[in-house]
Design a protein around this nucleic acid. Structure first.
Lengths: 230, 230
DNA sequence: CCGCATCCGGGGCGATACTG
DNA sequence: CAGTATCGCCCCGGATGCGG
C-alpha cells in the first residue's frame, strides 16, 4: 500500500497491515493456524484470488508470514504466521471486541458466516466459574465446520475444529448462539429461536456470564446506559 | 467503504474503521481532543481535503464523531469523538504498540512528523518509578508544537501542548528522543546525537525504563510464546 | 481563513476466466 | 491446488474553486 509518510507508530503499522483484507487474512491464520491457499479462500469469502495472492506476498515480504512446503502426505503449500505476525493478536482482539456490538442485530441478508468467527465473542464473554473442576469442552455448530470452546486452568479458549467427547453441543443460527454466549438468552428462550442443544447444561452454565454482557449495544455509553439495539 | 459481507466482529469493525485515513483521524482526535477541520488537516499531512470531509461525514454517520458549533469567540466547527469513538483507544494502543519497531530505524526521507505522535512510545515505555514523590512534567520538542509527559498517581500520561514549569525539556530529532524514552540512549549518548537537554535529569531518570525496552527490533522473536490480549 | 465541493488522472480493488 | 491474466470500476490523491 502507499505509505502515509508519517513518522508515527500507528501510521507505520497501517502502512504494513492497513490494506484491505490484510487483517482478515491474519485473522484466519490466527484462528486456524497454518493454512493452505484453499483454506484461506474458504475462510475469506468475497476475496478475489489475485488479491489473496498479492496480500500473501506482501505479508511474507513484511516478515509476518512464512511459506512452508509440506511433505508428500500433504504435498501442499502451507502459510503460517511468523512470531511477528502473531504479535498482531492483541490488535485483532481489540478490534474484534470493539466490533462485537455490530453483530447484535444479526447478520445482514447477504452476510457469509464461518463458525470460527465466533472465537472473539466466545473468549470475550465466557469465563470459567469453576476453575478447579475438571475441564469441559463445548462444541458450537453454527456454520459449516464446528468450533470448540474449552476451559483450561480457569481460562476459556476457542478454536476451530472438533473434539472427541464434547460435554455439550450447541447448533443453531449464529446470532442465537451469540445470544447464549453473551448471557442475553437462556436455554429455553434460545430453543424457541431454533437452538438445538445436546449434553450437559451445567457445562454451559459454568462458562456463561452471570449477567448479560453490557457491551452489546452499539450506542452503549460507558456511563452504564445499556439499551437494546434490535 | 464496501462491506466485507462477513458476520464476524473483526470484519464488521473494519467495515466501519477500515477505510484509509479513518483510524488516523481517530488518532488525532484522541491525542488532541476536539479539533477544527484545519487542525485535523495539519495533524494529517498528506490527506486530501475531500477525503477528510468524506471520512468525517462517515464517522459522524457511524456515530463515532460529533460536530459541534463553537460559540463566537471561536466561531468554528469542532469535531469531537463520541464515547463510542473513544472506545477505539484500546485498538489504537494495540496497533501503535505493534508499530513502534518500525520507528527505530528513524523516519524515511520524506516522512512528516508531529510531536504528539510520540504519545504511544511515551506511554508504552515510561513508568513512574517513584509514585509517592511529587508529580513531574517533562516537555518534548521534536516537531512543531510541544508535547508534555506528566506523572499522575504513578501513571505516566502524554498529551499535546505545553506546561508552565516543566521539570525538564528535551529538544532534538524524533528518533533521538525515542531512543531516550526507550532507554536505549543515555543522556550523554543522546547529546552526541544532537539532543538538547535542560532541567532536572532526575525527573527524566524517574520515568525512564531501567533497561532498554525489548520490543524495539522489528525481527524480535518473542522468547516464549505470544503475549496475552490487551 | 474555514470548511468544504468539483474535477480529473491513476491505481487499488473486484469478478471472472484461465493455467501449470 | 495455487496461483496468473485480464478488464472495468470506483476509491484515492492532488489541484483548484467557492461560498460563508
Amino acid at each position: 500500500m502507499r505509505s502515509y509518510g508519517q513518522y508515527c507508530a500507528l501510521a507505520k503499522a497501517l502502512d504494513v497491515v492497513g490494506d484491505r483484507w490484510t487483517l482478515l487474512i491474519v485473522r484466519e491464520l490466527l484462528l486456524r493456524g497454518a493454512c493452505r491457499y484453499t483454506d484461506l479462500r474458504n475462510g475469506l469469502p468475497g476475496i478475489a484470488t489475485n488479491l489473496l495472492a498479492d496480500r500473501l506476498r506482501a505479508l511474507e515480504g513484511a516478515g509476518l508470514l512464512e511459506r512452508e512446503e509440506a511433505p508428500p502426505p500433504v504435498a501442499s503449500t502451507l502459510f503460517r504466521l511468523t512470531p511477528r505476525g502473531e504479535q498482531l493478536k492483541p490488535v485483532l482482539n481489540a478490534l474484534g471486541r470493539w466490533g462485537i456490538p455490530y453483530m447484535v442485530a444479526g447478520p445482514d441478508a447477504e452476510d457469509e458466516f464461518r463458525n470460527q468467527w465466533l472465537a472473539w465473542p466466545a473468549e470475550l464473554f465466557l469465563a470459567d466459574s469453576e476453575p478447579a473442576a475438571p475441564p469441559v469442552a463445548i462444541e458450537l455448530r453454527a456454520g459449516e465446520g464446528p468450533m470448540v470452546i474449552e476451559t483450561s486452568h480457569g481460562a476459556v479458549r476457542a478454536r476451530a475444529g472438533s473434539t472427541e467427547h464434547p460435554d455439550a453441543v450447541l447448533s443453531g443460527a449464529p446470532q442465537v448462539i451469540l445470544g447464549v454466549l453473551s448471557g442475553e438468552l437462556d436455554l429455553p428462550a434460545a430453543r424457541d429461536l431454533g437452538l438445538h442443544f445436546e449434553g450437559d447444561a451445567r457445562a454451559l452454565a459454568r462458562v456463561q456470564p452471570p449477567d448479560p454482557h453490557p457491551l452489546l449495544a452499539v450506542d452503549a455509553a460507558p456511563a452504564g446506559h445499556a439499551d437494546r439495539a434490535g
